[in-house]
Amino acid sequence: MGKTSSIKGVLFDLDGTLVDTEALILASFRYATKTVLGRDIPDEELRAKIGQPLTVQMWDWADGNQEVHD
Results as ranks from 00 to 15, higher is better:
37 L>H: 02
19 V>Q: 12
51 G>R: 09
40 D>M: 04
69 H>M: 11
56 V>Y: 02
25 I>M: 13
18 L>G: 15
65 N>I: 10
33 T>W: 06
23 A>R: 08
17 T>A: 10
34 K>V: 06
46 L>W: 00
67 E>L: 14
25 I>D: 01
50 I>W: 00
70 D>V: 03
29 F>C: 07
30 R>K: 15
22 E>L: 12
62 A>S: 15
12 F>W: 12
40 D>G: 05
29 F>Y: 12
50 I>S: 04
9 G>R: 11
39 R>L: 13
16 G>E: 02
48 A>L: 08
52 Q>D: 07
28 S>G: 15
66 Q>G: 05
32 A>I: 07
53 P>E: 01
41 I>S: 03
54 L>F: 10
2 G>Y: 14
59 W>T: 11
58 M>H: 02
47 R>C: 03
6 S>Q: 13
66 Q>V: 09
64 G>Y: 00
36 V>S: 13
59 W>C: 06
49 K>V: 04
6 S>T: 08
58 M>A: 06
8 K>A: 09
5 S>V: 02
23 A>E: 08
5 S>M: 10
41 I>A: 06
60 D>P: 03
42 P>I: 03
55 T>D: 10
52 Q>E: 10
8 K>I: 11
70 D>H: 12
21 T>K: 06
64 G>K: 01
2 G>V: 03
60 D>M: 06
13 D>F: 01
37 L>D: 00
70 D>W: 09
21 T>S: 15
29 F>Q: 12
28 S>F: 06
60 D>Y: 01
54 L>D: 05
12 F>R: 12
11 L>W: 04
61 W>Q: 01
52 Q>H: 13
27 A>C: 09
10 V>L: 08
65 N>R: 15
2 G>L: 11
7 I>E: 06
4 T>I: 08
48 A>E: 07
21 T>W: 02
63 D>W: 07
66 Q>R: 15
34 K>Y: 08
40 D>F: 08
8 K>P: 00
1 M>R: 11
1 M>E: 14
16 G>S: 06
55 T>N: 14
19 V>T: 11
28 S>R: 15
15 D>T: 03
21 T>V: 03
60 D>I: 00
7 I>C: 09
25 I>F: 07
24 L>S: 12
26 L>V: 02
57 Q>W: 00
6 S>E: 11
